[in-house]
Design a protein around this nucleic acid. Structure first.
Length: 254
DNA sequence: AGTATGCAAATAAGG
DNA sequence: TCCTTATTTGCATAC
């Protein structure tokens, strides 16, 4: 059977490594994130020409699609619980929902006892070997706003971390939020944030050709200064989004 | 300040 | 290798 943690080739990016931007002036390194301090990833971000307005106004993102958000979303744990017959022993695809619910509740309680925020837990998990999760993930887990499958995957990770965190507290609370363990670095690649300029360019390319060849993707990537893979995936996702939205519109003619 | 959440990157799985 | 489809997950920001 498939196992918990997937096997990702993405190497963990040790925080605090210096980027070597071969890029021209006006280089931008990943949008500043308030929640996570570590950026690393050593990814060269896109150049940022002259936007438009010299004004200091920060807000300038353009909303393209009107958004018809109602895709076939998978049911979350909490939703499943609201089903008619949901007596003791609720199970979904071999997953004990009750147990997960209980742990989620418990987890939150114990997290609070440790005096930690979701953000801190997320950071701790990120610093850890093994899978990393964000504040969002912790939040969703506690609320059970995730699929049973995801919850099942998260549970052991949180369980282990919590146990060790409590133990560390018990002993000298030396190193607050860190712990070693788990396998070698297997972490999800950090999510790329495209600049509005880059998105504009990407969309322009997409309009001309939604299915660029490998060579074209390479060119675009170089032009925009993003990893080729990132650009390739962008096109895949863009196609998917387009397909999904138009599919919806067929049945929803306003 | 923490937490919740919308949109969309990133990933998994089957060609 | 890279596509599609389905899904997981996180950045950014709203609350």
């Amino acid at each position: 059977m498939a196992q918990v943690i997937g096997t990702l080739p993405w190497v963990v990016a040790p925080p605090g490594l210096s980027v070597a931007p071969p890029a021209p002036p006006g280089l931008q390194v990943t949008a500043v994130t308030p929640q996570l301090l570590l950026n690393a990833q050593g990814q060269v971000q896109p150049i940022q020409p002259a936007p438009a307005g010299p004004g200091p106004s920060p807000t300038a993102v353009a909303k393209a699609p009107p958004a018809a958000s109602s895709c076939p979303e998978p049911p979350t744990v909490s939703q499943l619980g609201a089903k008619p017959p949901a007596p003791p022993g609720t199970e979904e695809d071999g997953i004990n929902l009750e147990e997960i619910r209980e742990f989620a509740k418990n987890f939150k309680l114990r997290r609070l006892s440790l005096g930690l925020t979701q953000t801190q837990v997320g950071q701790a998990l990120t610093a850890t070997e093994g899978p990393a999760y964000s504040q969002s993930a912790i939040c969703r887990f506690e609320k059970l706003d995730i699929t049973p499958k995801s919850a099942q995957k998260l549970k052991p990770v949180l369980e282990k971390w919590l146990r060790e965190a409590e133990q560390r507290q018990r002993e000298g609370q030396q190193h607050l939020l860190e712990f070693v363990g788990g396998e070698p670095g297997k972490k999800r690649k950090r999510r790329t944030s495209f600049t509005p300029q880059a998105l504009e360019a990407l969309n322009a390319h997409f309009e001309r050709n939604a299915l660029p060849t490998g060579a074209e993707i390479t060119r675009i990537a170089q032009e925009l200064r993003y990893e080729r893979e990132v650009v390739r995936v962008w096109f895949c996702n863009r196609r998917q989004t387009l397909k999904n939205t138009s599919k919806l519109n067929v049945f929803h003619v306003p």
